[in-house]
């Protein structure tokens, strides 16, 4: 349960990443903990799908840049490749779910404000940030999903995000248990 200053700080962090990814104000409000609840149903599921997709696009963009420019430490490149592949899979699954429901899933932005990009541990830290944001967004939104099949997919995506986050935390020497 998020509470107090630490909770507010965590929410700010997730909202900052989510806003940069292009997430809708409706879902941003939920992530910001402003008390708004999505009205359960198809529309809410699509709003969550689109928010999740925006984060996946953002994550793919970050991994693309990191891999293209050799910003990941050599020993961690295989993990980066694997995680990028996972995000592509999440994206494709959610695009398919949205289209099946007659939605128009958002495409990736033309460009992302990724900020200064430095190699090595600093870039791993950037990858960790987007994974933490994704994990917190999925965790915060999953209980608002009403469609069984999307809920199942979101659950397995969340398992992936935690895995990515844990691997990067360990690479940075942060506590993982």
């Amino acid at each position: 349960m998020i509470s107090g200053e630490a909770g507010a700080s965590r929410r700010d962090f997730v909202v900052r990443i989510a806003r940069a990814a292009g997430i809708s104000p409706l879902v941003l409000g939920v992530l910001a903990g402003r008390g708004e609840a999505l009205v359960p149903g198809e529309e809410a599921d699509l709003a969550i799908l689109y928010a999740a997709l925006a984060l996946e696009h953002h994550a793919i963009a970050l991994y693309d840049v990191g891999l293209e420019r050799g910003l990941f430490p050599a020993g961690l490149r295989a993990h980066a490749v694997e995680f990028r592949g996972d995000h592509l899979g999440h994206r494709d699954t959610q695009v398919a779910i949205a289209e099946e429901r007659g939605g128009r899933p958002p495409e990736a932005l033309a460009s992302y404000e990724l900020g200064p990009l430095q190699p090595g541990d600093r870039f791993v830290q950037r990858a960790l940030e987007i994974e933490v944001a994704a994990q917190r967004a999925y965790t915060g939104l999953i209980s608002q999903i009403r469609t069984r099949d999307y809920l199942l997919s979101a659950a397995f995506i969340l398992v992936d995000e935690v895995r990515h986050m844990t691997v990067w935390r360990r690479a940075l020497g942060l506590q993982i248990y």
């Binding site: 994990q135 965790t139 999953i142 209980s143 999903i145 809920l151 659950a155 969340l158 398992v159 935690v162 895995r163 986050m165 844990t166 691997v167 360990r170 993982i176 248990y177």
Partner: peptide
């Protein structure tokens, strides 16, 4: 769902630690 999803986050982390 919220409660079990948060537990799942812990458990997925445990699984990754075991993998590592």
């Amino acid at each position: 769902v919220d409660t079990l999803a948060r537990h799942m986050v812990d458990l997925s982390r445990h699984l990754t630690v075991i993998d590592l």
